[in-house]
Simulated assay, not measured.
Amino acid sequence: MNKSIKDNIRVAIQGFSGSFHEKAAQHYFNETLSFVYCNTFSEVVKASEDSELSDGGLMAIENSIAGTILPNYQLLRNSALSIVGEVYLQIGQQLMALPGQTISDIKEIHSHHMAIKQCEEFLKKHPNIKLVETEDTALSAKKIKNEHLKGVAAIAGEQAAKIYDLEIIAPNIETVKNNFTRFLVINPEQRDNHEANKASLLFSLVHEPKSLSDVLITIGEYDFNISKIQSFPIIEQEWSYYFVVDIEFDEIKELYNLIEELKHKTSSLRLLGSYKKGITI
C-alpha cells in the first residue's frame, strides 16, 4: 500500500471502530492507520479501488466455523483489485452491556449474524433473551453506549468494550475456542514481492471430463501445496463455476511457470495475487 510522507495509511474496512476488521488491520500493518469505515463489503471494494479515498483495504474471506464468504470472491472477481497480503485473527466473542448489569438484566442481545452463530451454545442457555441481528458487532456496542440502552447487550470483541465503555458480563462466549477469521489485504496495484510464498488463482473450466483433475494434477507436479480450493457460481452461466485455488510455493518463478501451463488447461485464468503467507494473531 502507498503511504505519503505526511499521511497515515488509509485502510478501507467493513465495520466501525472496535471491529475485528480494525484489529486485524492494526496488527497487519503495525503502523499508524486511518480508517475508511464501510457498511458493506461492496463499499470496501469501491473505496479500495479509489486512490482518493484509501490506499487499499482489508476484508474477511473465511471463518474457521462459519466457512467461506462466497460473495466476497464475487466482489474480487468483478474488481481490478489484487490480494497483496493476508492475516488470521483469533476471534473471541464477549457479551457486553452498560456497567452495573448482569445477564439476568438482559432482555435483548444485538450483534452481526455471524457472531450470533459463533455463540449458539451460550445463547441456547438463555432462550428467553431476544436475538437481534445487526450489520456489525462494534456498531451494536456503539448503539448501546450512545442510546444508553439498559437491558440490551452486544456480542463483540474486547476492543469494542474498551472503546465504548461497556462492561463484559460474559467473556469468551464463542462455542469453539479455536475460532479464526482469515482477512485479505487488497490493493489496486499488484507489485512483485520477493517474500511471496502464497498465491490465489481464479479460473474457469470447460465442461469436459477430468478438466478439474488435470489442473490439480498439474499443480501437484510442481510440488506446490494446495491450502484451499473453493468454487462459486458464474452468475452469467447457469450451472457453471469459477474456482479459487490457494497454493503455497518456495520459488515465485515456478508460480509463473505454472500459470503459463495452466493457460492451456483452463477457459479463463487470473492471478488474484501473490503474497506472503499470513500469520495468526
Rank of each mutant, 00 (worst) to 15 (best):
P171C: 03
L216D: 04
K125Q: 15
Q14L: 11
E43F: 01
I106F: 05
R10K: 15
Q94M: 07
K162H: 11
H113D: 14
K263P: 12
E108P: 03
P233C: 03
E52I: 09
G100L: 07
E43A: 12
S19G: 08
L95D: 01
I5E: 13
D105R: 01
Q230P: 00
I226W: 03
I235A: 13
L58Y: 01
S200A: 15
G92I: 14
I173E: 03
G157S: 11
L271W: 08
H207W: 02
E43W: 02
L139Y: 04
K177I: 08
R10G: 04
Y88V: 12
T68L: 13
V36K: 06
L98F: 10
S54H: 09
D214Q: 13
L205M: 08
R10W: 07
K23T: 13
G151V: 05
K277A: 12
E147G: 02
L149G: 09
Q74F: 10
Q90M: 07
S34C: 10
N179F: 10
S4Y: 07
A154G: 02
N72R: 11
K265I: 04
I155L: 07
E260D: 15
S42V: 02
S17K: 14
L201S: 07
E147M: 11
A156R: 00
F249Q: 08
A160P: 08
D55R: 03
E221C: 10
N8V: 06
H264K: 15
H194Y: 05
L255Q: 04
F41V: 01
E189A: 01
H112C: 04
E167Y: 06
E147T: 09
T134Q: 11
S268G: 12
H194F: 09
Q26G: 09
G67K: 04
L271H: 06
L70A: 11
E236K: 15
E248M: 09
R77Q: 14
I83F: 07
S111I: 00
Q74A: 09
I219G: 05
S54A: 15
Q90W: 01
F203T: 04
I217P: 00
D246W: 02
R191T: 12
L81P: 07
A196R: 10
E49R: 08
F249A: 04
G18Q: 05
L53D: 06
